[in-house]
């Protein structure tokens, strides 16, 4: 059970949060101009990394804010949390 440092509320128990999949996938601005393959790439293809992964999380039972997290999936270590729209603090 993680202890997650919500960028708005501070440290809270994982049970207050919900995970929202891979981060930094930008919704295409002009979907109509994409081929089926390009659209499918955005719609379906997600990474499933063993190691450092960038993820979206939502403080769903708290402030309801979405934010990003850098987490190592191999040991669940959270390296950073940062607000939506911000650049990842680590690469």
């Amino acid at each position: 059970m993680f202890l997650i440092n919500c960028p708005y509320c501070g440290e809270r128990d994982q049970s207050e949060f919900s995970a929202g999949g891979e981060a930094h996938i930008v919704r295409p601005k002009q979907p109509t101009e994409l081929s089926d393959n390009q659209w499918a790439e955005f719609l379906f293809m997600r990474k499933n990394i063993k190691g450092v992964q960038f993820e979206r999380w939502n403080h769903s039972h708290g402030c309801r804010k979405w934010f990003n997290m850098v987490r190592d999936t191999s040991n669940d270590k959270i390296h950073a949390v940062y607000k939506m729209g911000e650049k990842p603090p680590i690469k």
């Binding site: 939502n58 769903s60 309801r64």
Partner: peptide, 13 residues
């Protein structure tokens, strides 16, 4: 509600 919040916060701030 949470889907709409998601779009508002992440895609269309």
């Amino acid at each position: 509600l949470s889907k709409l919040e998601d779009y508002l916060q992440t895609e269309w701030p």
